[in-house]
């Protein structure tokens, strides 16, 4: 028998590119549509401007709704170079990425511990699960400054409190996903273990944990996005000296729309890279999963 993997080698980038091209084509009309009105208002307000018509002004407003391509390009250049300067976006992106990754790691560890406890003990599940659900309804914007102050008293400052906030949001999907995964083995798989007279620990190690790995990755993809939002919100809502959130807060106060767009695009790319990283890890660590 040949390997029956039906791996069609079709290029998965083609549909992706089509959408990208459509996006690029639509960009200019959307930008004009969004900026034309504000530009007209600006002209009629009699402000001192270098542009004569609303159409012209739509390309050069200081605080555009959607930045013009050249504005965006200049914004990227000015905010990215040199990349490792504390005031440039790439440096701050790395800070946020570090917080998010540390947060995800902490979330995975706590999520795993809680999931094992939830699955092992009905009493634990009944007494603790409602509180875990409740914990997720607390707005992080409210928790973040409090946690920053609280941790600051113990000398924990800088990016660690942000990672903790990211973990606080990210642990929940991981915990629930893993608990489902640990419970996923069917009765026959468990019977098989019993015919071997396997211990509870062995059943966890040889059956429940491996069975829950695909669930972990699904949960991680949800959690990665949540952790990123968590660390950015934490940066915005507590005292920060670096990070995308700190830059967003600064430029928002300065009403620099182009800068906000640049930071937002960097943040989006970070999110995509994180999920891609998890996808890659999943492919490497679960080679048994059917492709396609």
């Amino acid at each position: 028998m040949n390997n029956p993997t039906l791996e069609k080698k079709s290029n998965s980038f083609v549909p992706l590119l089509v959408v990208a091209v459509i996006g690029l084509i639509l960009y200019l009309p959307v930008m004009l549509l969004a900026n034309y009105g504000p530009a007209q208002k600006l002209l009629s307000s009699g402000a001192e401007l270098e542009c004569k018509t609303a159409l012209e002004c739509a390309f050069q407003m200081r605080n555009p709704v959607v930045p013009a391509p050249m504005q965006l390009w200049d914004g990227f250049k000015n905010m990215s170079l040199p990349p490792l300067e504390p005031t440039s976006v790439p440096y701050n992106l790395l800070v946020t990425a570090g917080e998010t990754l540390l947060g995800l790691l902490l979330a995975s560890v706590t999520g795993l511990l809680l999931a094992v406890l939830l699955v092992s003990s009905r009493a634990f599940e009944r007494s603790v699960l409602p509180w875990l659900v409740a914990s997720q309804t607390i707005p992080i914007v409210a928790v973040a400054p409090m946690l920053a102050v609280l941790l600051g008293q113990y000398g924990v400052q800088g990016w660690v409190p942000k990672a903790l906030i990211a973990a606080f949001i990210a642990f929940f999907p991981i915990c629930i996903g893993l608990a489902k995964g640990l419970r996923s083995p069917d009765p026959l798989s468990l019977d098989l273990m019993n015919t071997y007279h396997a211990s509870r620990v062995q059943i966890f190690l040889k059956l429940r944990f491996p069975a829950s790995v695909p669930y972990l990755f699904t949960a991680l993809k949800v959690s990665a996005a949540a952790a990123l939002v968590g660390s950015i919100v934490a940066e915005i809502s507590s005292i920060s000296f670096s990070g995308l959130g700190k830059m967003l807060a600064e430029n928002s106060r300065a009403s620099d729309g182009v800068a906000l767009w640049v930071i937002m695009i960097y943040g989006a790319v970070l999110g995509i890279v994180l999920v891609a990283l998890i996808n890659w890890l999943e492919r490497v660590l679960t080679p048994w999963q059917r492709k396609g």
């Binding site: 798989s189 098989l192 015919t195 040889k206 491996p210 069975a211 999963q289």
Partner: peptide, 30 residues
């Protein structure tokens, strides 16, 4: 407890994440 019997179920009950040989290794590991 003395592993006196082997049991074959209605379904093969092979563990997805294990290769064929490693499925056969499972009882020996346990």
């Amino acid at each position: 407890a003395n592993r006196a019997y082997g049991y074959v179920f209605q379904a093969p009950v092979l563990y997805d994440w294990r290769t064929v040989i490693s499925n056969v290794l499972l009882p020996l590991e346990i």
